[in-house]
């Protein structure tokens, strides 16, 4: 909540790194974290969603394979797909948030080729015309 608080004036890296540390400490950290992050990323408040995406990116860089495995499941990827798809939340979500989600997905297809479901999700969005370029 503190790492994504809409009243933060700017991204609060103390809390963001604290969230990453907590994931690394706990056995079920990645599973719990992705559920919390999916909820924040779908926030109707743009700034809360943007901060949640920054936290997600930080976790991908700092929480290792256990976290990558969890993000690389359709269970989580589907929550990101809902954000960009007009069939779900896409019409109500800002372009900024949608662009960031697509940029993250693309960056992981390059950085984590072993997480094949990320590629499946990204190329499905491309085929459906939701990712244009």
């Amino acid at each position: 909540d503190k790492a994504t608080n809409p009243s933060n004036r700017q991204e609060d890296w103390e809390y963001i790194i604290g969230f990453c540390d907590q994931i690394n400490k706990e056995l079920e950290g990645p599973q719990i974290a992705v559920r919390l992050l999916a909820h924040k990323i779908q926030s109707p408040q743009e700034w809360e969603a943007v901060q949640a995406l920054t936290v997600l990116e930080a976790c991908m860089k700092n929480c290792g394979r256990r976290f990558h495995n969890e993000v690389g499941k359709f269970r989580f990827l589907n929550e990101l797909i809902k954000v960009v798809s007009p069939k779900y939340l896409g019409d109500r979500v800002s372009e900024k948030v949608k662009t960031k989600v697509i940029e993250l997905l693309y960056s992981w297809t390059v950085a984590l080729p072993e997480e094949s479901k990320i590629k499946d999700a990204y190329y499905m969005l491309k085929r459906q015309g939701i990712v244009m370029f």
Binding site: L27, E28, Q31, K73, F74, R75, L77, N78, I81, K82, S85, K87, Y88, K117, D120, A121, M124, L125, Q128, I130
Partner: peptide, 15 residues
């Protein structure tokens, strides 16, 4: 304590 490792997943959404 023994932790249950959840390896389950769902299907990819269709948009």
């Amino acid at each position: 304590t023994v932790s249950f490792h959840d390896d389950s997943d769902e299907d990819l959404l269709n948009v």
